[in-house]
């Protein structure tokens, strides 16, 4: 009988330890996901094709509690990606990689006030982007606590670059000459 009680106690202890470690793992995974979600460097973007003169045709994924929020975030992230990150090359040679407009990694902090206004709801960033899809049902993924929506965007890259040059945030090719 004592043996049986001992075995049961050990089994319960083992279960508690495994449960704790898996819940700790889930918690850390949750933390990582949260950090990635809030990271300024985390963009889910792919280049679809070469856009017409001065534009980039890309697909950007955004997240939000509602599908509309996710869509709005995707548009904002598309413009932010052009400014700070650049776009990767398209698959099967469809387009070459596009560099970031702003090369200075500290620019976002240096010009925080400007970007706050620029990316405000209904802000100037909307001037440099056109939606070619509205986040069709196939590009909506229901996630825990919200939606992930993919939107195809045409970003007016050259106009955006010129605006940043005008503001003195990005350097033009002929600056210093």
């Amino acid at each position: 009988m004592r043996k049986l009680v001992g075995i049961i106690t050990m089994g319960i202890a083992a279960l508690i330890i495994t449960g704790c470690s898996s819940s700790a793992g889930a918690q850390s995974r949750h933390k990582v996901r949260k950090l990635e979600y809030n990271s300024a460097y985390n963009y889910e973007v792919s280049t679809i094709a070469v856009g017409v003169d001065g534009t980039k045709l890309v697909k950007v994924w955004g997240r939000g509690k509602k599908a509309e929020d996710a869509q709005r975030n995707a548009i904002k992230e598309g413009v932010a990606c052009a400014l700070f990150h650049g776009f990767p090359a398209g698959s099967n040679g469809s387009a070459a990689p596009t560099p970031a407009i702003i090369k200075d990694p500290a620019a976002a902090d240096k010009h925080a006030d400007y970007f706050e206004k620029f990316f405000a709801p209904g802000g100037q960033y909307l001037q440099y982007v056109n939606r070619s899809t509205d986040g069709a049902s196939a590009d909506r993924v229901k996630e825990k606590g919200g939606y992930k929506v993919g939107v195809t965007l045409s970003i007016a890259y050259d106009e955006l670059r010129k605006e940043m040059e005008r503001q003195g945030i990005a350097k033009s090719l002929n600056s210093g000459f």
Partner: peptide, 15 residues
């Protein structure tokens, strides 16, 4: 159109 932005970016780095 596809390659010029990449090229200009590298030229800028050279300058």
């Amino acid at each position: 159109l596809s390659h010029m932005d990449e090229f200009a970016g590298r030229l800028q780095a050279h300058f």
